[in-house]
Amino acid sequence: MTDNLKQKILFIMLIQFLIYFGFSMIIPVMPELVVVFGVSTLHLGFILAIYSIASFISAPFFGTLSDRIGRKPLLVGGLFVFMLSFLVFAIFSNSLVILYISRFFAGMASGALYVATTSMVADITSIESRTKYMGLIGMAMGIGFVFGPGIGGLLATVSISAPFFMTSIIILVALIFSIIKIEETYNRHTEIVRGIGVQKEYFIKPVGILLVATFVVMFMMSGMESTFQLLGKEKIDITPGEMGVLFFIGGIFNAIVQGGVIRKLKDGQEYGAMMIGQLMALIAFIMLPFMTGLFYAGICIVLLMSGNALVKTLMTSQITKEAKHNEMGKMTSTTYALDSLGRIIGPVFFNLLFLIHYGVPFFFGALVVLLSTFFIYQYYRKRGQVV
């Protein structure tokens, strides 16, 4: 790694850490908001879904824009809107309507941020080294998740709006840092392919199978995230503070996988690592309905977050390897749009299953793990890397 490349990667890692630290601070607070507002737990699913609806709508536009004007304007603009979304709800934390509106704008901003940061990493790395650097970026996100939920749970004991105020301050720091330190990474030297939206032509190529797998994996994980806390309340009467501790532990393992395991993988070793990640997720989903205590829940979180770290990061890395330089924004935005579609459907669907019985969504999740494993296998089979 050259000094210039090292500096750019470190800057992007810091931005990702600040974004995910700030964002994850509100995770332990969301179920409590449902209690405070005195509404159905279905709203938890809808609140998560509205964020992803906005991401799904905005990501394709930002992908095309990124390939026209560059990555830094999207990064700066996305951070500014992201900051405002948390600040507005912190000020009007007694309004369920304002919560929905703020989450919608936060979702739009996240589309710009994902396209900008993922495209930046792809811009400055080679195909052979991309998995390594994607792992480092993932490690920064994981470290953010290590500290965010724990601090968010503690701040929630002060007031329900405190984590939102703190998040807006953290994102403001990231915004100022981006303006001063982050350089533009995109050098347009070829004609841009026109058109806005999810790129249909990708789906007639082998990468289309991996894109579908991206949707299935996110559908599964977002559904689990939206019901895990409800399961904890049902089975072991878990508190926001305890939930924060679980995410803290899971985040540590996530960071270890991203910065240790993935960083050491060589180009061509992704398939085996993905299969291990899928197996970890399968075991966790089967275990979850039988939760007996915090230690048991912690094992499930570690398996899920570590397994997802392997699968999601490696899929993202592999997908960017399929894109031309002047289409990187479109490819990353298509990936994020499918991520968002999974996050739209997953929470609502899994919460509906939870109403039937607390164990149903997790047994269903195990079946979805098998489906996504089949798609990953089919991609690598068409690539001639497995038989």
Rank of each mutant, 00 (worst) to 15 (best):
K6E: 08
K6T: 07
Q7S: 14
K8I: 05
L10A: 11
L10P: 00
L14V: 14
Q16R: 06
I19E: 07
F21A: 08
P28A: 02
F37K: 12
H43A: 06
G45Q: 07
F46M: 13
F46H: 07
L48Y: 13
L48K: 03
A59Y: 01
A59T: 09
G63N: 08
D67C: 12
R68F: 13
G70W: 00
R71I: 09
R71C: 11
R71L: 12
L74P: 01
F80H: 06
V81W: 01
F89R: 06
V97F: 02
G107F: 01
M108L: 14
S110F: 13
G111M: 06
A112M: 15
T117Q: 12
A122H: 01
T125K: 11
I127H: 08
E128T: 04
M141R: 10
G150S: 11
G152M: 00
G152N: 00
L154H: 08
I160F: 09
M166D: 00
T167L: 12
T167I: 02
F177K: 08
F177A: 15
S178Y: 06
I179T: 02
T185C: 01
H189G: 15
T190P: 00
R194V: 01
G197Y: 03
Q199A: 09
Q199F: 09
I209F: 10
V212W: 14
M221W: 13
E225S: 12
D237R: 14
V245L: 14
F248G: 06
A255Y: 08
Q258I: 03
G260P: 10
V261C: 06
R263G: 10
D267T: 01
Y271Q: 08
I276M: 12
G277N: 12
L279C: 01
L279F: 13
M287P: 08
L288A: 11
P289M: 04
F290R: 08
M291G: 03
Y296A: 02
Y296G: 05
G298N: 04
C300S: 09
L303V: 06
L310F: 09
K312H: 12
T313L: 11
K321C: 02
M328T: 14
S333Y: 06
Y336G: 03
L341W: 09
F350G: 07
N351A: 12
L352T: 10
L353Q: 04
F363W: 10
L370M: 15
L371N: 00
F374A: 05
I376N: 15
Y380Q: 07
G384Q: 04
V387A: 11
